[in-house]
């Protein structure tokens, strides 16, 4: 009797099957490591299996390296292109995280969580002093040279 019950349960579970999770594809522009101060655009395409209607929104959370949210956006679905878009200009170096959650008719859909990370780097720059000092030294050298020539 017990064996039959177990077999029945197994048959029921096999019929139900696993709950299909949404798959979201994040594509970042520009791709790869970005320099600090560069605007990054995240385009999220819903999985082909999910149907998209009016009233769909995506909540984008841009997490700073370590902790703290830098930006939170509610973006509507673009029905013509079937995608959600958001952008941000990072102000700190390190690993940033974008967390997205879909809202349907103004209510969050908990099965739709997805994440994407990217690195922000600092390309060395001279800054204002880096320009002022060489200019000053060139000027000094030029005046010294003129004096010698005269």
């Amino acid at each position: 009797m017990r064996r039959i019950l177990i077999l029945l349960l197994l048959m029921i579970f096999s019929l139900i099957g696993p709950v299909e999770a949404y798959v979201y594809d994040h594509s970042l522009d520009p791709v790869g490591d970005v320099n600090i101060g560069t605007r990054i655009t995240d385009t999220v395409s819903p999985s082909p299996s999910s149907e998209v209607f009016l009233g769909y929104q995506m909540r984008f959370k841009w997490w700073r390296p370590g902790d703290g949210v830098a930006q939170l956006t509610f973006a509507p679905i673009n029905l013509a292109r079937n995608e959600y878009i958001d952008s941000y200009t990072p102000d700190t170096t390190g690993t940033w995280k974008i967390q997205s959650l879909e809202y349907i008719k103004k209510k969050s859909n908990q099965n739709t969580n997805s994440e994407k990370t990217f690195n922000v780097v600092q390309v060395p720059e001279f800054g204002p002093l880096g320009l002022a000092i060489p200019l000053f030294l060139i000027g000094l050298f030029y005046t010294g040279l003129r004096k010698r020539m005269l």
Partner: peptide, 8 residues
Amino acid sequence: QPFTFKIV
């Protein structure tokens, strides 16, 4: 560290 809330 400013925070921006945006809704489109």
